[in-house]
């Protein structure tokens, strides 16, 4: 092969590899990005029904209820303006408490109940997950009242 052809072949190989990578990335982005919504947005029906997304806020005080099986937990997540009913089956993280920040990932049912597949709470007592802080801040910017029930 002539050096010029070789060069072209190498460049072509590189371009092919690169476009495969870009294709993979785009494809993965399309199906795997997890968007974030605040409880207010969910209540205002801005969130999709059949797609996985994240919500964030505070676990409303007095809202945690355990089902009889001992593993299914229902609670409400609030951004101080609106609240959202969430249900989760499984073992909760150590720092999941009432009145604390929480981020949950899951799907919204047509009945308005958020079925969480994952509940995240960070390993730091005084920490609020940024997404949860963001939700509360958004609610405040919207001029909501701040009183907790």
């Amino acid at each position: 092969m002539k050096p010029r052809h070789k060069r072209i072949a190498i460049i072509a190989g590189g371009v092919v590899a690169l476009s495969v990578a870009v294709g993979l990335v785009l494809n993965a982005f399309q199906s795997n990005l997890v968007f974030f919504f605040t409880p207010s947005q969910v209540v205002a029906k801005e969130a999709p029904i059949d797609r996985t997304f994240r919500i964030g806020g505070m676990v409303e005080v007095g809202s945690i209820k355990r089902h009889a099986d001992g593993l299914t937990v229902a609670f409400r997540v609030t951004d101080t303006a609106k609240t959202l009913d969430v249900v989760y089956t499984g073992v909760l993280p150590d720092l999941f408490r009432e009145g604390k920040g929480v981020v949950a990932q899951g799907r919204l049912g047509a009945d308005g109940l958020f079925k969480a597949s994952e509940v995240l709470a960070k390993h730091d007592e005084n920490y609020m997950p940024p997404e949860a802080a963001h939700a509360i801040e958004q609610a405040r910017k919207a001029g909501a009242t701040v009183k907790q029930p």
């Binding site: 505070m58 005080v61 009145g99 509360i136 801040e137 405040r140 701040v146 009183k147 907790q148």
Partner: peptide, 9 residues
């Protein structure tokens, strides 16, 4: 319980 702290952000 830090409730007021949360109110104050």
């Amino acid at each position: 319980d830090g409730r007021i702290g949360i109110d104050f952000g």
